[in-house]
Amino acid sequence: MSAGKDLMPYRKERALEDTAFGHGFTPARLFPLLLPVWQVDVRATTVDGKPYELIDRYLERGIAECGLGAVAELAAFFALDEVLVDRAVRFLTGIGHLTGTPDGRLALTELGRDSHRDQVRYVVERQDRRKLYFDGYTSRPLTRRHYDAGVVTFLTLAEARAADGFRLLATTKGFRRETLTELSGYRDREHYNLPHRLDRPESLSEECVFLPVYVIRAVRPGGGIRCLTYGQAADTADPELSELCEQAPEIQAALAHENTSEEEQRTRITNWLERKGLTGHRPVRFPHGGWQVVLPSSAFQPSGPPLPRASLGSFAALSTTVVRIWCEDKELREQALLDRVESFVKARRRSAEEVAALGAKVGRQLGSGTIDLPALRAMAVTAGRDALVSSLDSLN
Rank of each mutant, 00 (worst) to 15 (best):
C66F: 14
D329T: 03
E263N: 10
G290D: 05
A253G: 07
L337M: 09
F154W: 07
G223D: 06
S351P: 02
T260R: 15
G100M: 13
R126F: 06
A317W: 06
G304M: 01
A234M: 07
M8I: 13
Q232E: 07
T19V: 15
L241E: 01
T229C: 15
T99S: 14
G363Q: 05
T382N: 06
M379D: 01
V381N: 00
P102V: 10
R187F: 05
A310H: 05
G280I: 06
D18W: 03
H257T: 11
R144G: 08
Q301P: 01
G150F: 06
G24Y: 10
A233Y: 03
I95W: 00
V151K: 13
S368F: 13
S314Q: 12
R145E: 15
S343Y: 03
H146T: 09
N193Y: 09
Y58C: 10
A352S: 11
E262F: 07
Q292S: 09
G150K: 07
L59A: 07
V83N: 03
M379P: 01
A170Q: 13
L211H: 05
R130F: 11
D56Q: 12
R121H: 13
G369I: 11
R145P: 00
V219E: 14
A316S: 11
S391Y: 10
T172S: 13
P249K: 07
Q365I: 09
L295Y: 04
P239W: 09
A75R: 02
L92M: 15
R121A: 15
M379S: 13
V123R: 14
I55Q: 06
A233W: 05
E73Q: 15
E82R: 14
V284R: 14
I95H: 01
T46K: 02
H116A: 13
T99M: 10
A299S: 08
T45S: 13
A299I: 07
W291Q: 04
V341P: 01
E178V: 05
I63F: 03
G313N: 06
A218W: 05
R87K: 14
T279A: 14
D329L: 08
G289F: 02
E182T: 11
R14N: 12
E65P: 00
S115N: 04
A383H: 01
G104H: 04
L241N: 02
P195T: 09
E53A: 15
